[in-house]
């Protein structure tokens, strides 16, 4: 049976004695596409890191497919995370290293294969398949650092998908991209979700980047959940005005929701 279920109960993350994230009770079901939105410093990245066990909460329980992350040793935790595809913000990876695109995508297989077991022909077939599917075939032997920002993002998605993930976590995958690339990347993410039915958690500043397939949104504000539910309800001007502290209108265009500052 495919996994991808996350549950958080009474979770609190503290930094320097201050609470930076508090989640009372939350279930993210297998196959859901959840958009995580909020102001700067609202706790979006922290939320994502708590969900995959990168940040240990001061209190509360985080379960991945029913397994309490706090109760696992480092080895078991790594085994649980094997099927998490994680795409962090650019500051958390070294884009200057001369890895070729194929080498980078093949890193996805490192999570799945046991230690001391080198990648084989089947692994490289999976890698090449994802390179082709994301239309990067011509860039295969180019270095990651020589790719454009949009192509790099595609390469990171290919890397995560080569891992055969049950959960895909993306932290601002469209930041620093032009509007055409932003559109392309979100289209790819939506397509992956509709084809593979994996759980997707996507952090985004811009509400219009959450594709039509994203049916649920979580609005974070100052480390707390301001709204959680159907995206149409969460992207309500009243909720957004509380978070952003300005007058907001929400426009729907071609299946996407655009927030506009009215003041």
């Amino acid at each position: 049976m495919m996994g991808g279920h996350i549950s958080l109960s009474s979770v609190e993350v503290r930094l320097s004695g201050r609470s930076i994230l508090a989640v009372k009770d939350m279930q993210i079901r297998q196959g859901e596409f959840v958009g995580i939105i909020g102001t700067n410093g609202a706790g979006k990245t922290t939320f994502l890191k708590v969900c995959c066990g990168l940040i240990k909460p001061a209190r509360g329980i985080v379960k991945l497919d029913g397994r309490d992350m706090a109760g696992l040793n480092a080895w078991s935790k790594a085994n649980v995370r094997k099927h998490i595809g994680y795409i962090p913000q650019a500051a958390e990876y070294n884009a200057e290293l001369p890895f070729t695109l194929r080498e980078l995508v093949s890193m996805g297989r490192a999570s799945v294969k046991p230690l001391l077991s080198p990648l084989n022909r089947v692994d490289y077939e999976i890698v090449d398949n994802w390179i082709d599917r994301l239309d990067l075939s011509e860039r295969r032997s180019q270095t990651f650092r020589s790719l454009s920002g949009g192509e790099q993002q595609k390469a990171l998605i290919a890397r995560a998908m080569a891992q055969d993930p049950e959960i895909l976590m993306l932290d601002e995958p469209c930041s620093n991209l032009d509007f055409n690339w932003k559109y392309q990347i979100t289209e790819i993410i939506e397509q992956l979700h509709s084809e593979s039915k994996i759980t997707i958690l996507m952090v985004s500043h811009e509400t219009n980047l959450l594709p039509e397939g994203c049916k649920r949104a979580i609005l974070l504000h100052e480390g707390g959940i301001l709204a959680d539910g159907d995206i149409e309800d969460v992207l309500d001007p009243n909720s957004l005005e509380k978070a952003y502290r300005c007058r907001i209108d929400v426009l729907k265009l071609a299946g996407r929701r655009y927030t506009v500052n009215k003041s």
Binding site: L54, R81, I84, G85, E92, N94, L97
Partner: peptide, 11 residues
């Protein structure tokens, strides 16, 4: 490439 990715993805 990234210790964060390595840690988050069970390497």
């Amino acid at each position: 490439f990234s210790r964060t990715i390595a840690s988050a993805t069970g390497v």
